[in-house]
Nucleic acid binder design. Structure first.
Lengths: 263, 263
DNA sequence: GAGTGGTCTAGACCACTGT
DNA sequence: CAGTGGTCTAGACCACTCC
């Protein structure tokens, strides 16, 4: 077994056993090289292994620390029905709280919303999902929600709608109207659209360099890619969202109710 | 910007643009050091970045290759109802095909099953999920399914049942009876248990060194951790599975049907 | 300024694969 | 055997953070 693996194993065991507690500062790299009697690059390779496993994180000029488990965001299956039930409530009640607050347990005032709209032409992928011709004009909406306290972004959302459908209500074309009380389901409601079902496709992949920066990830932490497809009562795809969620903070919970056997 | 980042950016662009096609063999490291006029460790650092992004993979003694996108396993929401519907079919029909074949599109004969049973005492986590005392005797079942063609494992499954519940049917205590036609839902049926609902909790994390080996992953590829909780018609937790799935091959699809607004 | 992690080098040797 | 990637060293310099 390689030296760096032995060192990584040793340090991993110390972390998992609690000898090195979450949040604890580790010895400096130069000091560790003396302890383990190896060269600096070898020591750094060992630490790189633990970093990729999400066990430690290093901060330039400060030190290397044992990583604390992060607060999970639970995204549950009943979220969508909850949103639908709220669509026809009064404006005030809808504005009081949103789905993000529900997932995180945070308050409206803890969060900072950012939205940006633009128009694009449907690429092959979008054209296929929406079942519209390639090049169809689409409204693309970009959302970012950050917590004020930690200044940590919760997700990156890219939402797509067919432009000609949306323009029936010009208020929906203006990003200044975000955050919209009641969210997308209420926005669609103003167009006379009722949702029949929502399909979630969940995959995971390594983050792009851009996402590492935007979501404040450390090396080795994957992202969830959630594609959410909303289908209306006429079996038409009316909205598609790509939601990028940090893998270390997110948990999905889906409940499948089964039919009873006939008596 | 650091040298290794410039090199990684350059190679990444070549891969994404298709100049380096999927499956293509890259120049040897020593050759790349000459091209980019850097030292070997720096070159290796650049390649390490791309490896962590899942774009390339290296094989000792052979070379470094552009990674091909892998065939996805789709795990859909209607899988559980499909399993339940099959529980009361004849033995022959149940034996003909299983849920794994359904997810992957493979045939029974393409797959190699492995099961190992043992008895353990419930730790805090299991005791809480099952709502039984700490230390309760549990049947732990370990499953591995591999494709014969690729010899690539599809998942690692750890399934837990309360021992005293299972022992009513001694056949369920013997791993030699696996693969059991109709799977866990049919096994529970022989105990007189009918499932009411199944809750899936999905999270993602970096693989442990053991999982990297078992699932044939490369550095930087996360795993899905699916905790599947089966609840019977008496609101009792009857089975819990932890399923470890390779992040680069798996996609979850969940459909949420919404109630209609009152007319 | 002192201490930390981040980058980089030139060169050595080893381990694995295929011929 | 030749060619490949994997490991390791000793030492240098830089960039960042805190005091």
């Amino acid at each position: 077994m390689a030296k760096y693996e032995r060192i990584a194993d040793d340090l991993r065991q110390k972390i998992l056993s609690g000898e090195l507690a979450p949040g604890a500062r580790m010895s400096a790299e130069t000091s560790l090289t003396e302890q383990y009697k190896v060269s600096l690059p070898t020591m750094r390779q060992a630490l790189g292994v633990l970093r990729a496993e999400g066990l430690i994180e290093s901060h330039h000029g400060i030190g290397t620390f044992v990583r604390k488990p992060r607060q999970k965001i639970r995204r549950t299956t009943d979220r969508y029905q909850w949103e639908k039930d709220r669509v026809r409530l009064s404006d005030g009640k809808r504005a009081a709280t949103g789905a993000t607050e529900r997932d995180t347990g945070l308050k409206f005032n803890d969060l900072e919303f950012y939205a940006k709209y633009d128009a694009i032409e449907a690429d092959d992928d979008l054209a296929q999902v929406f079942n519209v011709p390639h090049g169809t004009k689409m409204l693309r909406r970009l959302y970012r929600t950050r917590t004020k306290s930690e200044n940590s972004p919760l997700s990156l959302i890219y939402s797509y709608l067919v432009y000609d459908v949306v323009k029936a209500n010009p208020e929906l074309l203006d990003e200044e109207n975000e955050p919209w009380p009641g969210g997308t389901q209420h926005q669609l409601y103003t167009l006379g659209i009722e949702l029949d079902r929502i399909v979630d496709e969940i995959s995971t992949r390594p983050p792009t360099p851009d996402e590492v920066e935007q979501l404040d990830l450390t090396q080795g932490i994957a992202v969830f890619n959630l594609r959410k497809i909303s289908i209306d009562t006429g079996d038409r795809v009316v909205e598609v969202s790509n939601v990028i969620l940090p893998g270390d903070r997110t948990e999905f919970v889906y409940m499948t109710k089964l039919k009873r056997w006939d008596a």
